[in-house]
């Protein structure tokens, strides 16, 4: 379900911002008491460069946004780029000045 909020960021801005976070290393990983094995970036199974490549190839049709289940004021962004015929799933939210990755997986 996609929510459009007044003043919300558009896809282009979200993409630019998460790329900036990846390049500057300004991000954490969500851990609900445990480290999510579906977050391949957190587990070092994909690199920042891999995720930068995937985010860079994501288009607006592969993006959805919705409120975080635990806090409706925080928007969770999901990118679903396709690379070599495989759909990736990159889920994150922004917390100034960086981001928090929830999952990165096939």
């Amino acid at each position: 379900m996609q929510f459009v909020l007044e003043g919300a960021m558009g896809f282009t801005e979200v993409k630019a911002r998460i790329l900036n976070c990846l390049r500057s290393g300004e991000y954490d990983h969500e851990a609900r008491g445990k480290i999510e094995v579906k977050n391949l970036l957190a587990c070092g199974q994909v690199t920042e460069e891999d995720v930068i490549r995937l985010v860079s190839r994501t288009n607006g049709g592969q993006y959805v946004v919705s409120p975080h289940h635990a806090d409706q004021t925080v928007m969770v962004h999901v990118f679903r780029p396709i690379h070599h015929g495989v759909t990736w799933y990159i889920k994150f939210y922004f917390i100034e000045p960086g981001a928090v990755f929830i999952s990165v997986h096939l």
């Binding site: 969500e30 851990a31 008491g33 957190a42």
Partner: peptide, 9 residues
Amino acid sequence: VVSVPRQCT
């Protein structure tokens, strides 16, 4: 625990 920093990867 709600997050882990990138530096722990």
